[in-house]
Nucleic acid binder design. Structure first.
Length: 584
RNA sequence: GGGGUCGUAGUUCAGUUGGUUAGAACGCUGGCCUGUCACGCCAGAGGUCGCGAGUUCGAGUCUCGUCGGCCCCGCCA
């Protein structure tokens, strides 16, 4: 076998009839009828049926098993109308084999590659190279490729330069845990893998690169989730002289291009919502706009009510909030008890339901509260005949997140979360700081290079918790798919920000000294954003885990089941790196 | 670190109140078969019931521990 294939396994059509072709691929499925053997040959482009009718070809075909690698020489023939296979693109023709060369045998695979059957994820990850042969992952990785290429073309056409930044870089104790790499040359010293290229991209702005992007791997040593892997891919973007409006329009253009690459049309501009609004109306900083079901505040209706649970919550400075589920008055007692139980598991004291059925108001709190305030709340939240209202009370931020979570549970139950309904929303005006109760200090909500809103600068000293940042996230269907900010470009403001975060000038100099120094040399105002490419592709593929759009993902315990990493290393390697381990 | 859930043949699963020799489908092996395309028919092989203790006359089944997959909380600037 010294020739290359003349066609892929998905290429042959009626127009090729009569041609002699040479195909290479995997045996997909064999149908041995005795005097004639049919089999399908597969590559990532498709399937082609091969017929072996006589002679050596028939003998060879009889030895074939699924996943054997073969080279076929043969003639393309049209199939009779009665035996056209409309399920495959090449189904109007077949290749009559004159030669079948076995290029490689294959062990019987641990799961079927030739059918789309359920297999445990553990087995799929152990034999990832076999899972990757199956259509589902092939489709996902092809779509990922198309989206990446579309993003590259878009940013190139908008005048961005793709510039690589170091993988071996410097540890910065803020934020996520770093993956560390010991230095052989410098005893006892370590590189860190980048959590993001944040400082480097800002330095590229200082360096006059103007518009930078990079499709880059980022590393964070934190616990995993369905949408979080220890290494993941960002489309990292930074722009000099940027305003929020410029970033929004650049990002919206990129989203249009990426969605177009996946076959979808996206309307811009995207709606915007402040962080405060998002938390109040959706109980989330990445609101899912698909199900409606906005959260309403009805605290005032219960301030003087007979219902002590709500009344006490309000007088203690808390809130009473809830949302209406359209047409859900028919929920069974079991459904409602289940929701109440879920609310309690989230930490809520309980859940009050109110419904209007055949004109009669029913509620779990009817006796305790009386009808009037419950009816008022029901109407205030937009409830009509046939609807169900779910209410709870307590401290404001807790109530918001309880209801935010419950809202998504109900929306899923109601089938209101369609995967191909893309509802983008900008979330803006994030708080600059959040209180860290363990350390008893303010932490950056985004990162320490984020600029405050100019109007809020006077609050920096007096009321840091009220300072809004020039930070923004792009949320899609309850996922954060991009996040960024306008950065601090004045060195004195940056030093001040570090001090507010409890980072002394000495610490700042040790960790970020090179950056603070760079800021002194004529830094343009700048800002940027980073897209979570894995999450974007997962949403486009309607996959619930980013593992389904990564070629070689890790398990929830951060293990690569195929490669068997992480693993121990030779003592010699450790000695060379000046490393001693403390054992398990 | 915590909570939930799952682990039985190569794969996906069933397995009753704890009771004889742990089943099915697909796959696999052998045989037959000249128009199949999830080919068909016949026969067969295949199990440390994740692992380790314990309870019991007896454990796939009950208890404890442990390992692993998945989901969530914490964590993720």
């Amino acid at each position: 076998m010294t020739s290359y294939r003349t066609h892929s396994c998905g290429a042959l059509r009626r127009e090729h009839v009569g041609q002699t072709v040479f195909l290479q691929g995997w045996v997909h499925r064999v149908r041995n009828l005795g005097g004639v053997t049919f089999f399908d040959i597969r590559d990532r482009h498709g399937l082609t049926q091969v017929v072996a009718r006589a002679g050596d070809a028939l003998t060879q075909a009889g030895k074939l098993r699924p996943e054997f690698v073969v080279a076929i020489t043969g003639t393309v023939e049209a199939r009779d109308a009665a035996v056209v296979n409309t399920k495959i693109a090449t189904g109007e023709v077949e290749v009559v084999a004159t030669g079948i060369e076995l290029l490689n045998e294959a062990k019987t695979p641990p799961f079927a590659i030739n059918e789309d059957t359920a297999v445990s994820e553990e087995t799929r990850l152990r034999y990832r190279y076999l899972d990757l042969r199956r259509p589902a992952l092939q489709r996902n990785l092809i779509l990922r490729h198309n989206v990446s290429i579309a993003a590259r073309k878009y940013f190139d056409s908008e005048g961005f330069l793709e510039i690589e930044t170091p993988i071996l870089t410097k540890s910065t104790p803020e934020g996520a845990r770093d993956y560390l790499v010991p230095s052989r040359v410098h005893k006892g010293e370590f590189f860190a893998l980048p959590q993001s290229p944040q400082i480097f991209k800002q330095i590229l702005m200082i360096a006059g690169m103007d518009r930078y992007f990079q499709i880059c791997r980022c590393f964070r040593d934190e616990d995993l989730r369905a949408d979080r892997q220890p290494e993941f891919t960002q489309i990292d973007v930074e722009v000099s002289f940027a305003t929020e409006e410029l970033i929004y329009s650049i990002v919206e253009g990129a989203i249009v291009a990426m969605w177009q690459a996946a076959g979808h049309t996206v309307a811009t501009p995207f709606p915007r919502m402040s962080y405060a609004d998002a938390m109040r109306r959706y109980g989330s900083d990445k609101p899912d706009l698909r199900p409606g079901m906005e959260i309403s505040d009805v605290s005032e209706l219960f301030r003087e009510s007979a219902f002590s649970v709500f009344k006490d919550a309000v007088s203690a400075g808390g809130v009473v909030r809830g949302f209406v589920v359209k047409g859900a008055a028919g929920y069974s007692r079991k459904d409602l008890d289940g929701l109440t139980e879920q609310a309690k598991q989230l930490g809520a004291g309980g859940l009050v339901w109110v419904r209007l059925a055949q004109g009669a108001l029913q509620s779990s709190a009817l006796k305790a509260a009386g009808e009037a305030p419950l009816r008022a709340a029901f109407e205030a939240c937009g409830g009509v005949e046939g609807d169900l209202l779910l209410l709870t009370s307590g401290e404001e931020t807790k109530v918001a997140t309880w209801l935010g979570t419950l809202r998504l549970i109900v929306a899923r139950k109601e089938g209101l979360l369609k995967g191909d309904d893309f509802r983008f929303v900008w979330v803006t005006e994030f708080p600059l700081f959040e209180w860290n109760p363990d350390e008893k200090r303010w932490d950056s909500m985004h990162h320490p290079f984020t600029s405050p809103q100019p109007d809020d600068v006077p609050l920096l000293e007096t009321n840091p918790g009220q300072v809004r940042a020039r930070a923004y996230d792009l949320a899609l269907n309850g996922s954060e798919i991009a996040g960024g900010s306008i950065r601090i470009h004045q060195p004195d403001v940056q030093r001040h920000a570090f001090r507010l975060l409890g980072i002394s000038d000495e610490q700042a100099a040790a960790r970020f000294g090179f950056f603070l120094e760079a800021l002194e040399y004529g830094t343009p105002p700048h800002g940027g954003i980073a897209f979570g490419l894995d999450r974007i592709v997962a949403l486009l593929c309607e996959e619930s885990s980013i593992r389904e759009v990564m070629a070689f993902p890790k398990t929830a315990q951060a293990v690569d089941l195929m490669a068997g990493s992480p693993s121990t290393v030779d003592d010699r390697q450790l000695r060379e790196l000046h490393i001693a381990t403390t054992g398990k």
